[in-house]
Simulated assay, not measured.
Amino acid sequence: MKTRKKALLVAVEASYGVSPDIATATLLTISELDSSPYEGDRVERTRLREQFGANAEINVAPFTTVTATIPLAGSGAAGTAPNFGLLLRACGLAETVTPTTSVSYTPATDDHESFTVWFVEDGQLQRVPGCRGTVEFALTAKELPTMKFTLTGLYQRPVAHATALAQTLVNIVDEIPVNKANTVAFSVHAHAGCGQSLSVNLGNTVTHRHLIGCENVQITDRAVAGSVEIEAPSIATKDYFALLESHEQVTLGAVDLTHGTVAGNIVQFALPKTQLSSISRSDSDGIVHYAMDLRALPDLGDDELTITFK
């Protein structure tokens, strides 16, 4: 099999773990794709013998994980969800559509949707029902923005699949590089200096449960975190050391980034209450940069992060 001949499709499930027909699935744009097709908890089937020798190992709770790096871009039309919005929903993000204007995603604690993904690899296919997952966003200057999804689902044995996929790509445009021209706003605790990068990890705890009469994948917790790197300002301009100190009090502030200038391919990250929890220095072209870890805290609940496509 050729390693580059891969594809990923996804469809929402009406009932948990019950896959719709693959003909209804959405084809996704993928830059990297891999899977662990047969994971699970293993126990040894112990046997005593007169001779030495290994015992069989039994997978008592098989499941599958799929990792996919997807370009971060819009659908091409404001108010239309990008096709990878299905995976954002699989990561416990609630989708709100404002027709002709925007599509936003915010964390949800309850009522998580489930999805089936199909992992296609040069003539074979593995259907993975009951998927839920987590995602990490990366936007770095002079690079292309990405999302890395890690999905966990129920195990199904891969099968031969010689038929060409009928789907074509819809509701997606090409990503644009992160730079001054395209990334029009970036501020960290109200300081809009020269930015190098923003990463945001949704931080879901995703658990496969395999019990008597019950098997599913659940999102059981969430802790949104990430990091920022910026050109170091003078203390007179912005004293980040005072902001990140937590031994006397915790200071919260917003982190905001808007990438894109053309309607249909604009994405905005808003983290209104972030704690900067560490700081380190680095050299970039002879200029001091600060790299700071961040934690996004909720206010009223399920509001620590909003991702808006416009």
Rank of each mutant, 00 (worst) to 15 (best):
M1P: 06
R4G: 10
A7Q: 12
L8P: 11
L8G: 11
V10Q: 13
V10I: 14
V10G: 11
S15H: 09
V18E: 12
A23G: 06
A23M: 07
A25E: 02
L28K: 01
L28T: 02
P37D: 05
Y38V: 15
E39D: 08
G40Y: 02
D41Y: 15
T46Q: 01
R47T: 00
L48C: 01
E50P: 00
Q51T: 14
F52Q: 09
A54G: 13
A56T: 07
I58G: 00
V60G: 00
T64M: 02
I70C: 04
P71T: 09
A73I: 11
S75E: 06
A77D: 08
A77M: 08
A81R: 08
N83Q: 07
G85D: 05
L87A: 08
R89F: 04
R89W: 12
L93E: 12
P99R: 04
T101Q: 09
S102W: 02
P107V: 08
A108F: 02
D110Y: 11
H112K: 11
E113D: 14
E113L: 12
F115C: 05
T116N: 10
W118K: 03
W118C: 07
E121W: 15
Q124P: 05
G130Y: 11
R132S: 12
R132V: 09
A138Q: 07
L139Y: 00
E143N: 09
T146V: 14
T150K: 14
L154H: 01
Y155P: 05
Q156G: 06
Q156Y: 07
R157S: 14
V159I: 15
V159H: 01
A160T: 15
A166C: 08
A166V: 14
N171L: 03
I172D: 05
V173G: 02
V178C: 03
V178Q: 03
N182A: 01
F186R: 04
S187L: 04
S187I: 02
A192W: 05
C194W: 13
G195C: 02
Q196G: 12
S197C: 10
L198A: 03
S199I: 06
L202A: 09
G203H: 05
G203E: 03
V206A: 09
G213E: 03
G213F: 01
G213T: 09
C214F: 14
C214T: 11
E215N: 13
V217Q: 06
V217C: 12
I219C: 13
T220C: 00
T220S: 09
V224Y: 06
G226K: 03
V228R: 06
E231D: 04
S234E: 10
D239M: 00
A242D: 11
L243Q: 07
E248I: 07
T251R: 07
G253W: 01
L257R: 04
T258G: 05
G260R: 00
A263W: 01
P272H: 04
K273W: 11
Q275I: 11
I279W: 04
G286P: 04
M292E: 07
M292Y: 11
P298N: 04
G301W: 14
D303R: 07
L305H: 01
T306V: 13
T308D: 02
